[in-house]
């Protein structure tokens, strides 16, 4: 295990009864970068995050965060000292006021930065004397961010950070994430908002039913993923398109659509050699890739 990786897991697994929440998950994340962690509801994103943070214990496999083992309570403490986490519910102590919560949280971190705290308090215009339970979800998210960022964590993990926020707050949040990543914090966030992920992330991980189905940099994806649509005078032979890099072939009538993760040129070449009357090559959006990645296993679910 190298120390360059901010997060790395090896065959990480979590079982609840006979349900495989996470299965043989292996990935590495280098910092500082922004990684989007994608998957459908119940795909195992939260379980993975909670294992990384030592809240739940892996059934098998191992993982390291910032060079510390995730399954050792003592090392988990070291991880948590330099990692911030904002959960989906943004659950904070409802009975405390904003000021009390900030004081409370700051007492745990010797590297707390009062200057950042003050700036963020002013920027977010958080009402110091208001109780947390009286804050809107947007305000709560900002408060959670303030608590996370006022100590410059090495790693910031967010679970569905934009969930329930209005568009303005979402934009602010995304901008904040890019800003702190540029300051050296590695950002790892789960989201269903693919358009957001596509904008800010360096790379993405897609998991489906606990298994990693895609681990790719978005630059690579933009450069290499293509959808080739070819029209033929007669019904085209689908099998001819089973080339390396082809993820999916779909024929409808005389048209054939190929989703390729690389090698688009060869596919175009093949279409031409099969005397295609029209060939169109288009970039593929993250949305399509995501849907394709999680749909591949769809029949298994029906079983």
């Amino acid at each position: 295990m190298t120390s360059d990786n901010v997060i790395e897991t090896h065959a990480l697994a979590k079982r609840y009864g006979d349900v495989d929440a996470v299965h043989a998950l292996s990935f590495q994340i280098r910092g500082p970068s922004i990684t989007g962690f994608l998957g459908r509801n119940g795909a195992g994103k939260s379980s993975t995050i909670r294992m990384l943070l030592g809240m739940i214990k892996p059934t098998a496999g191992s993982g390291m965060v910032l060079g510390h083992r995730i399954d050792d309570p003592k090392q988990s403490l070291l991880i948590r000292r330099r990692t911030a986490y904002i959960g989906e519910e943004k659950g904070l102590y409802a009975y405390m006021t904003v000021e009390q919560l900030v004081r409370f949280t700051s007492s745990f971190y010797p590297d707390w930065r009062p200057d950042i705290e003050q700036r963020l308090l002013r920027m977010y215009q958080l009402p110091l004397r208001r109780k947390v339970k009286a804050l809107s979800k947007g305000m709560r998210t900002k408060l959670a961010l303030l608590l996370a960022l006022s100590r410059r964590p090495a790693l910031l993990i967010l679970d569905e950070p934009t969930e329930g926020l209005d568009p303005v707050s979402i934009e602010e949040l995304l901008q904040m994430l890019t800003g702190i990543a540029a300051e050296g914090t590695t950002v790892f966030f789960s989201s269903h908002q693919l358009a957001e992920v596509e904008r800010i992330a360096d790379s993405i991980l897609i998991i489906e039913r606990g298994r990693l189905v895609l681990d790719v940099s978005l630059d690579h994806l933009r450069e290499n993923y293509r959808r080739v649509t070819a029209g033929f005078p007669a019904r085209p032979p689908e099998a001819e398109f089973r080339l390396p890099g082809v993820e999916r072939v779909r024929a409808s009538g005389r048209q054939i659509t190929v989703l390729a993760s690389r090698n688009a040129d060869a596919i175009v070449e093949r279409a031409r050699s099969l005397s295609a009357v029209s060939v169109e090559v288009e970039p593929v959006s993250l949305r399509e890739i995501f849907l394709d990645a999680v749909r591949t296993d769809a029949p298994a679910e029906a079983r």
């Binding site: 500082p32 970068s33 922004i34 934009e171 995304l174 901008q175 890019t178 800003g179 990543a181 540029a182 904008r199 800010i200 992330a201 360096d202 630059d219």
Partner: peptide
């Protein structure tokens, strides 16, 4: 990066 809301690695 912040203004374009993209990763700093891109810039």
């Amino acid at each position: 990066a912040e203004e374009l809301v993209v990763s700093h690695n891109t810039v």
